[in-house]
Amino acid sequence: MTGIRKVFAAVFAGLALTLLSAAPAAAQADKLKLTVAGDGAEGVTIQATHTDGRRLDKVVRLVLTATGPDGQQIGPVQLDPQPEGQGFYSSGPVLSGGKWKVTVKSPAPLQSEATAVVQAKPQAQAPRQSPTPSPTPNRDSGEGFTWWWSVGAAGLALVAVAMGVGILLGRRRTAEENN
């Protein structure tokens, strides 16, 4: 009977330690750390993480407001997550040239707020010239496609010949064993 009591005591102690160690993580989960910066042009980027450094694993609704150099007001603008990474948000080109005071807020349950001064630089008026395209074939257009088919067909033929030789050698060996 004492062995069973020791097992129950050990299980209870392990469960209590597990629950107590999870409590600080749950307490930290109610806030976000928002890092606000300019994107080098007319937009804003935001990196959202938990205050304990963990990456954000769900979509959070972030709202941006900004005050410009001449008292111009922008926002509230709802920000959408970007494919660059977990917790990465971008506003797109919403600012004009100059220094802007940008505030980003997230609502409850992960309520947070961050403010930063961002230097927006307007895009050049003339469009940039793209480099001349390379003469290599475009994979999406189908050019060079026959070359890949010929390589695949040659590989398939080589596999078929190897299998045929293996079958012939196997039949010859069984025929010699039967005689």
Rank of each mutant, 00 (worst) to 15 (best):
M1Y: 11
T2L: 09
T2M: 05
I4L: 13
I4M: 10
K6L: 15
K6F: 11
A10I: 07
A10T: 09
A13F: 03
A13N: 02
L15G: 12
L17M: 13
S21C: 10
A22G: 10
A23E: 11
P24A: 02
A26W: 15
A26K: 13
Q28L: 06
Q28V: 05
D30A: 13
K31N: 07
K33P: 00
A37E: 12
A37T: 15
G38P: 04
D39H: 04
G40S: 07
Q47V: 14
H50S: 07
H50W: 13
H50L: 14
T51S: 08
D52N: 15
D52T: 07
R54H: 11
R54I: 05
R54N: 11
L56H: 11
D57C: 10
K58C: 00
K58Q: 10
K58P: 00
V59H: 08
L62M: 06
L62Q: 05
L64E: 08
A66K: 03
Q73A: 11
I74E: 03
I74R: 06
P76G: 01
V77R: 06
L79I: 02
D80G: 09
E84N: 13
E84D: 15
G85H: 08
Q86S: 14
Q86V: 04
F88E: 02
F88A: 12
F88C: 02
S91D: 09
V94K: 08
V94F: 06
G98R: 07
G98H: 05
W100I: 03
K101Y: 01
V102C: 08
T103F: 06
K105R: 15
P107I: 00
P107W: 00
A108C: 02
A108N: 08
P109R: 01
P109V: 00
S112Q: 03
E113K: 15
A114H: 12
A116L: 02
V117S: 11
V117D: 13
V118Y: 06
V118S: 05
Q119Y: 01
A120W: 03
A120R: 02
A120C: 02
A126S: 08
P127Q: 09
R128L: 15
Q129D: 13
S130D: 08
S130K: 10
T132S: 14
P133A: 15
S134R: 10
R139T: 12
D140A: 14
S141G: 08
G142H: 02
G142D: 02
G144Y: 01
F145T: 07
W147M: 09
V151F: 05
A153V: 11
A154N: 08
L156T: 11
A157D: 04
A157N: 05
A160E: 14
V161Q: 04
M163F: 07
G164N: 13
G164F: 09
V165K: 01
L168F: 13
G170D: 01
G170A: 01
E176T: 06
E176M: 02
E177T: 05
